[in-house]
Computed example of a mutant assay.
Amino acid sequence: MKSERPLGRRTLLLVLVALLCSEGLFYALYTPSAQTPRCSDGTSNCNHSKDDKSPAGRRTPDRSTVVLIWRWPYGHRAGLQSCSKLFQIIGCRLTADRREYDKADGVMFHHKDVQGNLSELLRMRRPPLQKWVWMNMESPGNSRRRAHLDGLFNLTASYRRDSDVWVSYERIVEASEDRQKAFKIPPKDKLVCWIVTHWNMRFRRVQYYRELSKHLTVHTYGGAFERPLGLQEYHSVMSSCKFYLSFENSIHKDYITEKLFNPMRVGAVPVVLGPPRENYEELVPAGSFIHVDDFKSPQELAEHLVFLDQNQDAYERFFRWRQHFTAERSHLSLEHACRICDHIKRHKVYTVVKSLSKWFWG
């Protein structure tokens, strides 16, 4: 057999050149260029504008989440202040301009406005990724039930703590040292007060008031008693009373409104009629209010209020919570919109409210 000849110098040089060329080609194809920076997602397209106007169906990573307020609740138009300034929510933009409908990530619909335009909503085209949010701060007893709402919305926003987006009417928050020192119980010249406009003899609050007023004097104001008050008078009268009847117009789970928080803020002790005491204690300190259900009858409650009127130390115990906390007013419609936006920004999963009627009205 003929023996193999060793490779010549020329052949060896050609092999080395070929290897060097292939290495350079591999480096050029597979190594990121210093002129093309890579983004965190592995792509090279890092120029996402923060003012991107892409529709909700084609969301880009860095643009603000947009929520359209279909109609301001009760026509009370609020300023579109920054969600970051009021609620420390970043990356959100609110609009009331319906021309931005196709660009909105979510649309907030107030229940009272929906019930009069339901047929319009059922015909509307919706971008694939856009979420419709049902918003309501009224109780089931004050909200018209509509079966066609089932399956129409993606999220709920209300006073109910089991809503997708929960917003309390008002809240108790930690007070600054200055506010703790500043609070003084206002001067009092009335024992019990009640300011009310909506009067209905079937309401439990009306029936309870009529029995209670047989045993002590209740100073009454508002449209129901033909003694309307302006905003300044409203707070002035309330603060001049030792006790204020914080009676809700209907009794439902979590339905605890400004009727509780207003007297707490101005320095009166609320006497509440609404959901059970346990529900109230989830929102405010247990010793900050009196619940009518703690007494066997309106007469027994009246006797207790008279006792507290005659015992200042016992009365002042209802204000101990002010050593650490204060009552904070809410920006209801605006806060709903901001917290809806924050929820949509943080939750990208598919959701639908299949039975709004059963959940809310039972």
Score class of each variant (00 low, 15 high):
residue 6 P to S: 14
residue 6 P to W: 11
residue 7 L to M: 07
residue 12 L to E: 10
residue 16 L to R: 11
residue 17 V to M: 13
residue 19 L to N: 12
residue 26 F to P: 04
residue 27 Y to Q: 14
residue 29 L to S: 13
residue 31 T to F: 13
residue 32 P to E: 01
residue 33 S to H: 03
residue 33 S to I: 03
residue 35 Q to W: 14
residue 41 D to E: 02
residue 50 K to F: 14
residue 61 P to G: 09
residue 66 V to F: 12
residue 75 G to R: 03
residue 77 R to L: 02
residue 79 G to A: 04
residue 79 G to Q: 01
residue 80 L to P: 07
residue 80 L to I: 06
residue 81 Q to M: 02
residue 81 Q to G: 12
residue 81 Q to V: 10
residue 82 S to R: 11
residue 87 F to D: 10
residue 88 Q to L: 04
residue 88 Q to T: 09
residue 94 L to W: 05
residue 95 T to G: 00
residue 98 R to P: 04
residue 101 Y to N: 06
residue 106 G to Y: 04
residue 109 F to H: 10
residue 110 H to F: 15
residue 112 K to I: 08
residue 112 K to W: 13
residue 112 K to Q: 10
residue 113 D to A: 02
residue 114 V to Y: 15
residue 117 N to K: 09
residue 118 L to T: 12
residue 126 R to P: 08
residue 127 P to W: 08
residue 132 W to Y: 01
residue 134 W to K: 05
residue 136 N to Q: 14
residue 137 M to Y: 14
residue 145 R to K: 15
residue 145 R to M: 15
residue 159 Y to H: 14
residue 160 R to M: 02
residue 164 D to M: 10
residue 164 D to W: 07
residue 166 W to G: 06
residue 167 V to H: 14
residue 167 V to A: 11
residue 176 S to M: 05
residue 178 D to S: 14
residue 178 D to W: 11
residue 179 R to G: 06
residue 181 K to E: 03
residue 181 K to S: 03
residue 183 F to P: 08
residue 189 D to I: 01
residue 192 V to W: 04
residue 198 H to Y: 03
residue 202 R to K: 15
residue 205 R to P: 01
residue 205 R to H: 04
residue 206 V to M: 00
residue 210 R to Y: 09
residue 211 E to Y: 06
residue 213 S to E: 04
residue 216 L to I: 02
residue 218 V to W: 03
residue 220 T to Y: 01
residue 222 G to R: 01
residue 224 A to T: 02
residue 234 Y to N: 15
residue 235 H to P: 03
residue 237 V to N: 04
residue 243 F to A: 01
residue 245 L to Q: 06
residue 246 S to C: 07
residue 248 E to A: 12
residue 250 S to Q: 06
residue 251 I to R: 07
residue 258 E to M: 11
residue 261 F to S: 12
residue 261 F to K: 10
residue 267 G to I: 01
residue 269 V to E: 03
residue 275 P to W: 03
residue 284 V to L: 01
residue 288 S to K: 05
residue 293 D to E: 09
residue 295 F to W: 09
residue 299 Q to Y: 13
residue 299 Q to P: 06
residue 301 L to F: 02
residue 302 A to H: 07
residue 307 F to V: 00
residue 310 Q to W: 06
residue 324 H to C: 08
residue 329 R to Y: 05
residue 332 L to E: 13
residue 338 C to K: 06
residue 342 D to V: 04
residue 345 K to W: 09
residue 346 R to Y: 05
residue 349 V to H: 14
residue 351 T to P: 05
residue 352 V to A: 09
residue 358 K to C: 04
